[in-house]
Design a protein around this nucleic acid. Structure first.
Length: 776
DNA sequence: GTAAGAAAAATTTTT
DNA sequence: TTTTTCTTAC
């Protein structure tokens, strides 16, 4: 208590005037615009500590973040300021975890059963896939990712499947782009989720919104419970999150949001930068605090980043500055190939580690796409530089882990058809596709879950043969036995029973392939995690920590949260997106090239601005030194691509850049030009010859009406669509298939396809943007 | 019904 | 280059 008072009384010495003002203003809504490196987390944590000191019980403060890591860090730091007993009941977590907690509490009001399952993206996509298959639609046109992404985008805008079906505009658009069955798939998806007593990530937000909107008493309860609401990274909120916050805060208006519009990089996932840009309008009388002093980076780095972001048209005016030393200029590295780029970076890392006594853990290499990591990994491994790579497959999405989790889910939630499908024949029980299809059929005919069909197989008319029926019954028995264990013991015992009784351990012990060994290790690691979880819960006084709670928490964890050896001294490799919120003394940003950063997918001004913010985020991760590299050529899906430096490079004021010497010619003898024995072609075409030659841009006036899928309300596509210069009947040549005749064109913006009848290999449908089809 | 091998297609970012 | 899908032989 004394400790707490002490810490808080010192507050004016620990914060600068802007930070202090932002922390101590608690009488109404406020938005804190926090420039990169301006002590945003500090303000947030001190603000919470201050609120507690002002007499707000911790249990009445709601603090929302985007990652578990951010939430945990925040809790940790508040604990250090005010002590554990004040923070124990703080509602601090991610949007998803806090709202999931509320949904589980109010489960009756949303029409789900307790212990509903959370589907991750993989589960969701595989559900979409099976629906498309059941509806006998073309899986190429209705690809699981495209369909799921659109479903997700709709839910993030709070458009449920019924609303969608009722919207004639959207249905008409779908019809025109050959997606007339989308609304039906959407509806089926929602039905199947409900039948399975399952929710996906987006449903957590959607159902929270509907719960609060449709139940005034419940809304009142949570309005009272959360007397003060704080939101981190507000520029990344989507419409659903924004509206939920509004419901909770509109009445008492004790809300404070923190964010930086210049660091909004998640619009592809529904983040709506307008949420922060218009926050003041939304909450009348809202005060705005700007944190403009950057404590992280040298002046050169801050100034360079400023000169870059100044090229964006839409932003909140602010002047970020640094009082640290000027520092070195940003070094631009010009390279020949992606391999060469990786080697150059590895060399710079070595000299940084040697000359400037930096630890490897002070160094990060950032890139736009995960595919770029391979070359970098190779080079670092070659030079014996230890590294740790983030992204890729997270622990909880590994096959063996998902298999075990699927058993757990099915045991907990017998309605979960997706999990059942995953494991009914794993380990192999000779229950094949045919049987599963029949079972699913039976289940929808009788309106009971597939597992209940199995339990009741003797009483339901069916055409399974005796052998199949026995196998199904045996599987049913396995699940009901495990369910008994689940009901009578704790999470760890249940997990143990699952991996032995299911035969998974036996399966993985059949041989000692390196793959199998690592799978066994992973499963043991999962068991350890469960054990740890149980012990922790028990120490908090819970006597029977259930597997269901564990699963619920685990379903919202991501890669970064499960980092188990963060201590080692090694270089960090990650995408720019995942670097947000982090800082490193040395930052390398690789692949500063057109079609990579900005990505080739970007067409509109609006999208280009987001890519520019992405580079802004990357540069502002650096504390002392920043390097930007680009390569003249790059291996992409097996062949050489010629690249030109990113336009963003010329957006940065050159006084902050240390540019490489101008290029002479491609050195014929450059050793790193060789890959797999084949040397470079002697003919070097100018950049993007294929694109420029055959794909002229269409002027905005003749924009085709069948553009990319773009939800209403987002930026209009002003002229970026690409027209392909082919017509039916054209004679064309393909690098692999040879000569052919165009027999059909499918115009779908950048995903346009052509159906071509090849002389030698028959008809094929080709994506024009990749196929490099040439008109004869 | 399964597993291995061949052929074809696909590449942005992920709470 | 890697991943996914299709084919074929057990």
């Amino acid at each position: 208590m004394i400790c707490m008072a002490d810490n808080i009384s010192q507050i004016d010495k620990l914060l600068n005037p802007a930070q202090l003002a932002a922390v101590t203003y608690c009488d109404g809504p406020s938005v804190i615009v926090a420039g990169a490196g301006s002590g945003k987390t500090r303000v947030l944590t001190y603000k919470i500590a201050y609120l507690i000191a002002q007499g707000f019980p911790a249990s009445s403060i709601l603090a929302l973040t985007f990652t578990n890591k951010a939430a945990n860090e925040m809790k940790e730091r508040i604990m250090q300021i005010v002590g554990e007993k004040y923070t124990r009941y703080l509602w601090a977590g991610t949007f998803h975890s806090v709202f999931l907690r509320i949904l589980r509490q109010e489960v009756d009001a949303i029409g789900f059963l307790p212990d509903f399952t959370i589907y991750d993206t993989q589960d969701s996509k595989s559900l979409v896939k099976s629906i498309v298959k059941d509806m006998k639609l073309d899986e190429k046109i209705y690809s699981a990712s495209a369909v799921f992404n659109r479903i997700s985008a709709m839910k993030n805008r709070l458009i449920a499947s019924d609303d969608y079906r009722a919207d004639s505009d959207m249905n008409r658009d779908d019809y025109h782009r050959g997606w007339q069955y989308f609304s039906e798939i959407f509806a089926a998806y929602c039905t199947r989720c409900r039948q399975a007593n399952a929710m996906d990530f987006d449903d957590i937000l959607l159902h929270t919104y509907l719960l609060l909107k449709n139940n005034p008493d419940i809304l009142a309860k949570y309005r009272n419970r959360f007397a003060f609401i704080l939101v981190d990274e507000y520029q990344d909120t989507n419409i659903a999150q924004h509206r939920i916050i509004n419901l909770l805060a509109k009445e008492h208006r004790r809300i404070s949001v923190v964010g930086d519009d210049a660091q909004s990089i998640y619009s592809f996932r529904g983040a709506n930068i307008d949420n922060i840009l218009s926050f003041q309008k939304n909450f009348e009388g809202c005060r705005i605090f700007k944190l403009e002093e950057n404590y992280r980076s040298t002046q050169n780095i801050v100034d360079a980043a400023n000169s870059l972001i100044a090229k964006n048209r839409f932003q909140i005016p602010k002047r970020v500055y640094s009082n640290l030393p000027k520092g070195d200029k940003i070094k631009v590295l010009s390279c020949f190939t992606d391999r060469n780029e990786a080697e150059v970076i590895a060399d710079e890392i070595k000299s940084a580690a040697a000359d400037r006594d930096a630890h490897y853990s002070d160094i990060a290499v950032l890139y736009r796409t995960n595919a770029q990591s391979r070359a970098l990994e190779d080079a670092l491994r070659n030079d014996n530089i230890p590294y740790r790579i983030y992204g890729g497959l997270s622990f909880y999405s590994r096959k063996e882990i998902k298999d075990v989790l699927a058993y757990m889910r099915l045991v907990i939630n017998h309605l979960d058809a997706e999990s059942l499908r995953r494991i009914i024949n794993y380990p192999a029980r000779t229950i094949g596709d045919k049987t599963v299809a029949k079972l699913i059929d039976l289940s929808s005919k009788h309106r009971i879950s597939p597992l209940d069909c199995i339990f009741d197989i003797d009483n339901i008319p069916n055409d399974f043969n005796a052998g199949t029926r026995t196998k199904l019954k045996k599987f049913g028995e396995l699940i009901s036995n495990l369910t008994e264990v689940y009901r009578s013991s704790d999470a760890y015992s249940t997990a143990n029973a699952i991996i032995t009784a299911s035969g998974i351990m036996e399966e993985l012990s059949s041989n000692d392939d390196i793959e199998n060994v690592s799978r066994r290790e992973n499963i043991h690691e999962l068991l350890n995690a469960i054990h740890e979880y149980c012990e922790q819960k028990k120490s908090l006084g819970e006597d029977n920590p259930s597997l269901s709670e564990f699963l619920s928490e685990v379903s919202l964890l991501t890669d970064q949260d499960t980092d188990r050896d963060g201590q080692r001294d090694c270089v960090t490799l990650m995408t720019i997106h995942s670097a947000k919120g982090l800082e490193f003394a040395y930052v390398f940003v690789a692949g500063i090239e057109e079609d990579l950063l900005p990505s080739s997918m970007c067409q509109t001004e609006y999208e280009i601005e987001e890519e520019r913010r992405l580079l802004y985020v990357a540069i502002t991760r650096a504390k002392r030194r920043c390097f930007l590299s680009y390569s003249k050529t790059r291996f992409r899906w097996g062949n050489v691509c010629y690249c030109s430096p990113s336009r963003f490079l010329s957006d940065i004021d050159e006084q902050y850049l240390d540019m490489p010497q101008a290029f002479a010619q491609y050195p014929d003898e450059a050793p790193s030009f060789e890959r797999g024995g084949s040397s470079f072609p002697s003919f070097v075409p100018p950049h993007n010859i294929f694109k420029k030659a055959s794909l002229p841009h269409v002027a905005s006036t003749e924009l085709p009406t069948t553009g990319n899928l773009r939800p209403l309300g987002e930026a209009v596509n002003n002229g970026g669509n690409v027209k392909f210069d082919f017509s039916v009947g054209d004679s064309v040549t393909h690098a692999v298939f040879g000569r052919g005749t165009v027999i059909e064109l499918i115009n779908d913006g950048s995903n346009s396809k052509a159906r071509v009848d090849f002389d030698s290999s028959g008809q094929k449908t080709l994506l024009l943007k990749y196929s490099k089809l040439v008109k004869n």
